[in-house]
């Protein structure tokens, strides 16, 4: 397939590349964002210019501060990791006064990830974010590490629809619903949230997993179970993006184990309109921009000049 997308056969330069994508009416300069939970504005911006990314997605924010789960919260697995952080965050007030102005210094789009235990909690946070400079909101109905809620909303199509409807009625900002892979049919959930007006979906959140230390006879994580992420989940994520693409028309932000520019291209071919970088950034803080550079290199080698050409090159 090499270079047959570039009929003129002229060498493609960086300035020939158009990486812009439009997600629910918001234009990103490129299709790369960060995955919620793996990005911290202050910490990450020490290592790269956030303005190089299409968007940044913050850690989950809730209406009041959450202290998260006990430790150990992290366990390594073969080609992946389990986490049970439990959405520790300082609450929406601190988020509005500190995180938003910090990120807004950079030329990038800001996606606030919203967490909650109950419908009311999601609604309160969305209402508070409504009058801020947040560009989009991503509703986390899929965290496997928070009891009473989170994933409870994401595994039931009716409840997922209900959350979507409720938050859509409160804000004009584009709403992205983040979906869990821990379901029988992710397409059903995607269709349900699309029907209630979701502007986009992001997938996948982590896969529910567990590790037992057989020398100690106890689970490695204090929370017992945690969310699996990293390159070992990528095939599952690609398959789910592919299924959801066939089920809905709204944009998809694809994520799950993306480590390279070519991994990002794989999600775009599967049907994603943009991609998020998560675990890779925990291993190497500059991963989001390294992957962006990798995607550009891939595009030049393949003769693609824009993102749609990558998507169109998939022979399904």
């Amino acid at each position: 397939m090499q270079n047959n997308n570039n009929p003129s056969n002229k060498e493609i330069e960086n300035e020939d590349l158009d990486l812009r994508v439009k997600i629910a009416g918001v234009e990103w300069k490129n299709p790369i964002t960060t995955a919620s939970g793996t990005f911290s504005a202050k910490e990450s911006s020490a290592f790269y210019d956030l303005g190089k990314l299409g968007a940044v997605t913050t850690k989950g924010v809730s209406d009041v501060p959450w202290s998260g789960n006990p430790t150990p919260r992290i366990a390594e697995t073969y080609g992946g990791m389990l986490n049970a952080v439990g959405l520790q965050n300082p609450g929406v007030e601190a988020f509005i006064s500190e995180e938003i102005p910090y990120i807004k210094k950079y030329d990038t789009k800001l996606i606030a990830n919203v967490a909650g235990h109950t419908l009311e909690e999601y609604c309160r946070t969305v209402e508070k974010l409504n009058d801020t400079d947040v560009d989009m909101m991503e509703i986390n109905i899929s965290c496997p590490n928070v009891k009473e809620g989170g994933i409870g909303f994401g595994t039931d199509a009716k409840m997922a629809a209900e959350v979507t409807k409720a938050v859509k009625s409160l804000t004009k900002k584009p709403i992205i619903i983040k979906l869990t892979p821990n379901v029988t049919s992710i397409s059903e959930i995607a269709k349900a949230v699309e029907a209630e007006g979701a502007d986009a979906v992001s997938l996948i959140n982590t896969l529910l997993g567990m590790r037992i230390d057989v020398r100690r006879g106890r689970t490695v994580l204090a929370n017992k179970t945690g969310g699996l992420s990293g390159p070992s989940v990528k095939p599952v994520a690609v398959r789910m993006v592919y299924e959801v693409r066939k089920a809905v028309r709204i944009p998809i932000i694809g994520l799950g184990g993306i480590m390279t520019g070519e991994d990002a291209a794989e999600f775009l071919m599967a049907g994603a309109n943009a991609v998020a970088i998560g675990t890779a950034a925990l291993i190497n803080p500059t991963a989001p921009i390294d992957i962006l550079e990798g995607l550009k290199t891939y595009m030049k080698e393949m003769g693609f000049q824009n993102i749609q050409q990558i998507q169109n090159a998939f022979c399904d």
């Binding site: 793996t38 202050k42 020490a46 430790t71 150990p72 919260r73 992290i74 986490n83 952080v85 803080p285």
Partner: peptide
């Protein structure tokens, strides 16, 4: 001592 993820403060895995 705590089990760490990223080591630079992004993942919030190692807390006390």
């Amino acid at each position: 001592e705590e089990r760490m993820g990223c080591g630079y403060g992004a993942c919030v895995g190692c807390v006390c």
